[in-house]
Amino acid sequence: MSRRVAGVAACLTVVAALAGACSSESQAEVRALTVPKAGSWVDMASDVRLSRDAGTGCIVDQLGRTVVFDEGTTVTGGVDDWVITLPDGTQFRDGERYTERGLQVSDLKDLNRTIAPETALEKLPEGCGPMPWFRVYAPDWPTR
């Protein structure tokens, strides 16, 4: 059983990594789509329940939206016992809720608002299904 994290530093790397991995192998994978971190955060709350999409292997929410994580997020375990570990160390398992900062993104412009500009994507990553996606932040900066 393969375990994969699509951590990226540049768009093309992401796209290539996901596109190449999103074939028949994905049936046995657990994958978290990750993008570079943001420069400021909106204070919008999330309420997404995480699960694995059987078709793509990607982590999705209860609405079937691909969940997009900060780079540094990792996946361990298998399709039945996966664990997502955010950069701040917070862990989530199948069916658990993420309720911190996040928002729906509907196109590349939306997604790039949530990414530091020097690492902004030139093209949407492929392989985890169409937009809209749900971008979650794992704030690791003090706000007080």
Partner: peptide, 8 residues
């Protein structure tokens, strides 16, 4: 700056 985690 330093870093921190938030709870919902």
């Amino acid at each position: 700056g330093p870093r921190v985690t938030w709870n919902a």
